[in-house]
Design a protein around this nucleic acid. Structure first.
Length: 229
DNA sequence: GCGACAG
DNA sequence: ATCTTGTCGC
């Protein structure tokens, strides 16, 4: 596997090949944030698509970590080649997100993905793959579970419950807002669970982090614009 | 074989 | 992910 910064990633492959790629790349995962981790620019990533189409709309929206104001937005629209197969989401969404990444004038210090990181059957979800690809700290923050289970957690913002899969803590169910369903946080690359949970809470005013809310709004606008043309 | 299954 | 209006509640 390359990801050498000079050769464009090769995305065309079968699910079986993708599985091998995950097993190889997961060896590169760094399970802790950089020393003195204090991100100033944080990006949200998301992809949306049309009902009976393979066309995808992707966006990376960078926010100022202190004010949560939007600093830069990069978008890409292209055919999604890889099918949606649970456990292989990164091979479907990273191609357009990578195009967004290359278009960013200034790279963020942290990226929050709309999906799992380490809480994955082979411990290499979307956030892990994106982090290794770009060599940047990443966090996975999903709305629903892919694998694992957790006990009850309090109903107040900040309450948590460890997410367990095969006797291993792979993530955390986190209540980001009083009385709402929890989100599922897991470490991506150059990240640990405690730091991931800390940042997701810091970025959340509503159920989902502001980063993903902004990215979501951008990709939905793109899709509607394309549909109306 | 059966059920589960990020977006 | 997407298809879809109103409605209940803070």
């Amino acid at each position: 596997m390359s990801y050498d910064d000079t050769t464009p990633p090769r995305w065309e492959m079968t699910v079986a090949e993708a599985r091998t790629v995950q097993q190889e790349l997961r060896e590169r995962l760094i399970a802790h944030p950089p020393a003195g981790f204090a991100p100033r620019w944080i990006a949200g990533a998301d992809v949306s698509m049309e009902r009976f189409s393979h066309f995808g709309h992707a966006a990376l929206v960078v926010l100022d970590a202190q004010t949560l104001a939007v600093a830069e937005t990069a978008t890409a629209e292209e055919e999604l080649r890889f099918p949606y197969v649970p456990g292989y989401l990164s091979f479907r969404e990273l191609p357009p997100l990578h195009a967004c990444w290359e278009r960013l004038a200034a790279k963020p210090d942290l990226v929050v993905f709309d999906g799992q990181g380490y809480a994955h059957p082979r411990r290499f979800g979307l956030a892990c793959h994106g982090g290794v690809l770009w060599d940047v700290p990443t966090i996975g923050c999903a709305k629903t579970l892919l694998v694992g289970e957790h006990g009850e957690l309090g109903m107040e913002r900040g309450d948590t419950a460890p997410l367990i899969h095969k006797d291993e803590v792979v993530g955390m169910a986190v209540r980001t807002r009083d009385g709402t369903k929890p989100v599922y946080v897991s470490a991506g690359h150059r990240m640990d669970l405690a730091t991931a949970v800390e940042w997701v809470l810091r970025l959340s005013r509503f159920r989902l982090p502001e980063t993903t809310r902004h990215a979501h709004a951008v990709v939905n606008d793109l899709r509607r614009a394309r549909k109306t043309e």
